[in-house]
């Protein structure tokens, strides 16, 4: 059994989760601080990939990154790089699809943050980056980690947009989900079943992690609550 799809799926998921982790946190942080119409508009845009069909996301990505379109054409002509049909092309798809998960969980965590903490920290002479990393992030840690794990799990399961932008090339762009689809088309039930078991196991472990973190968060929430 060729384990390349497993390796490729995990590689893609890890990289896109890492990207989304930072971008999602900072978007959430700035959105939770602004208070205007822009906030409402950006919030809709950032959340949109969550509700759009993956095929729509894939279609839009191809129209942007495809070799005959806009950005894709630019990269092909200038750097001689084709942005689609590589193993890493799937990262574009998964990043866009999982971004709302990270963004929304982080935003929720930031909104529950007690502003008195940052206000007081400022009067103590602490810089904004110190306040962000040493006070706000530890306070919101559980929410942010839960968001990252959820995003990772979703990235592993991403199929629609990935298959459109990276396609299915065995040993090159194959992921678990595209492999399962191919095996079903080829009537290879035995191998398909193995991949399904692997997929279910990974997903179950991930969900278990989220539950553990959430129960920890609730206990800590009760502790923090007693401070007020």
């Amino acid at each position: 059994m060729d384990l390349y799809p497993l390796f490729n799926s995990i590689r893609i998921s890890l990289i896109s989760t890492a990207i989304v982790f930072f971008v999602g946190i900072f978007s959430a942080y700035y959105i939770s601080k602004t208070n205007s119409i822009i906030k409402g508009i950006l919030d809709v845009i950032f959340t949109l990939p969550l509700v759009l069909p993956p095929t729509v996301v894939g279609y839009l990505l191809i129209k942007l990154l495809g070799p005959n379109h806009f950005i894709g054409e630019f990269f092909l002509n200038t750097f001689d790089i084709r942005l689609t049909m590589n193993w890493w092309s799937a990262i574009f798809a998964t990043t866009v699809v999982i971004f709302p998960l990270m963004y929304r969980t982080a935003r929720g965590a930031f909104q529950s943050f007690d502003a008195n903490l940052s206000d007081t920290a400022m009067t103590l002479g602490l810089s904004n980056s110190y306040i962000f990393w040493r006070i706000r992030m530890p306070y919101c840690k559980q929410g942010v980690i839960a968001g990252a794990i959820l995003a990772f799990a979703r990235a592993l399961g991403e199929y629609g947009a990935t298959s459109m932008i990276a396609g299915y090339t065995p040993g090159k762009t194959a992921t678990i989900s595209t492999t399962v689809y191919q095996l079903w088309r080829l009537n290879n039930d035995e191998l398909a079943f193995r991949w399904i078991v692997i997929n279910i196991l990974i997903s179950a472990v991930v969900l278990l992690f989220i539950n553990i973190i959430e129960s920890k968060y609730q206990r800590k929430g009760a502790k923090y609550g007693s401070l007020r």
Binding site: D114, D119, T120, Y224, L227
Partner: peptide, 13 residues
């Protein structure tokens, strides 16, 4: 300025 808010705002972590 030293500021002591009502909730004391001690850093929980």
């Amino acid at each position: 300025i030293g500021y002591l808010p009502q909730s004391y705002a001690l850093f929980p972590s």
